[in-house]
Design a protein around this nucleic acid. Structure first.
Lengths: 222, 222
DNA sequence: CGGCTGCATATTGGATACAATAACCGGTCG
DNA sequence: CGACCGGTTATTGTATCCAATATGCAGCCG
């Protein structure tokens, strides 16, 4: 029996605010006025402030003393770094996971891939990031690397914010679905080098295309 | 001109408490009573609680709703994972740094290595962790990878807590000094493969020795 | 004698209240 | 007309206070 689905206002505020930032409800650089936000969430400033400190540690919020909190800038300058870091870590995870993967693991990953594919075809852009993370997490789960997984989750969070800058997901999503399928088959075959190769291309390719899209968009606007 | 060496009580409490935990003033699992700790730090519970939430995100504190905060357990079970993760990421960093390293970078790293060596010979165990981190950071700095660096810093934090469990640093420190020197020479020669090879052995070796030491210690105690 | 119930106490969670700092704005002086 | 200076207001930082929850103990009941 599970004893404690406890929930404190601080936790609730943290999740709500994190979700808001990731979904783009608050734009990067936007100041987060404590009183207003607290009222909007139906709490006082105390739990909200605790949430802000938590999210600062996660890199979603920047706190300036006596000036308040602002939504952290999307790390466009570090885009390449983030995606390359993901490729490095996730390929290592996958290499460790493949030899340990059970048929149940594969089935689970296949399900997650399906969820992502559905989200793409139905245009549920809000769920894409999480569905994608879940698929990747399912692939890596057999490696049994909790610390690394947590880290990857945070990286995905940052990358999702970058993706949201550029909603070219219409075609990028379709390509991701195809790559997920190919990746899954490689994993399913136990073909370690092919799988890591495809994973690396999947991640780095997404980063490159995203960088190009953002660059062209910035050029147009600037 | 530097505009703002601002300091809020929350920040001060965060750093003080982080330092205390890393230095082992508070043992793992020890409950952190808010009122007592706040009084000890000379602040009220509010900034202390904000500090606790920050440190929870950093993995140094665990918050249990309505039961309070406890010092997070040292991740002995994840020791291998942490050191292997460090090896993976830091070798990549070093490989990127070497081609970009300037003579000034090398000099800086050499200085950091000297500081670490002095800390070892003088038995300043409290400073070893930071000195070690600084040397590694100096090596990687030319890579210009701020996100990765931040991540590595957090990993070092966790690894330092593990090291503190087992103060066999007397000989481990001397070995680390030698390995740092060899590593620095390899970097200085621009020998990428030799340098990464030595770095990998340096990190993984430390992890392995630490695991063995902890295992034998646990066996004795258990 | 053991376990459960209910009160008393300690501690945390959260809200309100106050102090400190920064942003704003108008006026004055050069 | 522009820049400095003062006060005014908005907002954050922190302390105090109250409510909610957990912990421990004593007494009751089986």
């Amino acid at each position: 029996m599970q004893p404690i689905p406890r929930r404190t206002l601080t936790e609730a505020a943290t999740e709500a605010l994190r979700e808001r930032i990731l979904r783009g409800v608050h734009r990067a650089g936007e100041p987060l006025r404590q009183e207003a936000l607290a009222a909007e969430l139906g709490v006082s400033r105390i739990p909200l402030r605790e949430a802000l400190h938590r999210l600062e540690a996660e890199g979603l919020v920047a706190l300036v003393p006596h000036r308040g909190a602002i939504v952290a800038e999307v790390p466009v300058g570090d885009l390449a770094e983030l995606f390359e870091l993901r490729a490095l870590i996730e390929c290592d995870l996958l290499a460790r996971a493949i030899p340990l993967a059970t048929p149940e693991d594969l089935e689970h990953a296949r399900g997650a891939a399906g969820v992502f594919a559905q989200a793409v075809t139905r245009g549920r852009t809000a769920q894409l990031g999480e569905a994608n993370s879940r698929f990747h997490a399912a692939l890596y789960a057999p490696a049994n690397r909790p610390r690394t997984m947590e880290l990857v989750e945070r990286l995905h969070m940052q990358c999702d914010r970058l993706l949201r800058l550029q909603l070219t997901l219409t075609d990028g999503g379709a390509q991701a679905v195809r790559e997920h399928e190919a990746l899954w088959h490689a994993v399913s075959d136990g073909d370690l080098s092919r799988a890591t190769q495809q994973l690396q291309e999947h991640i780095l390719g997404a980063g490159t295309r995203l960088a190009a899209a953002i660059a062209s968009q910035t050029r147009q606007e600037g």
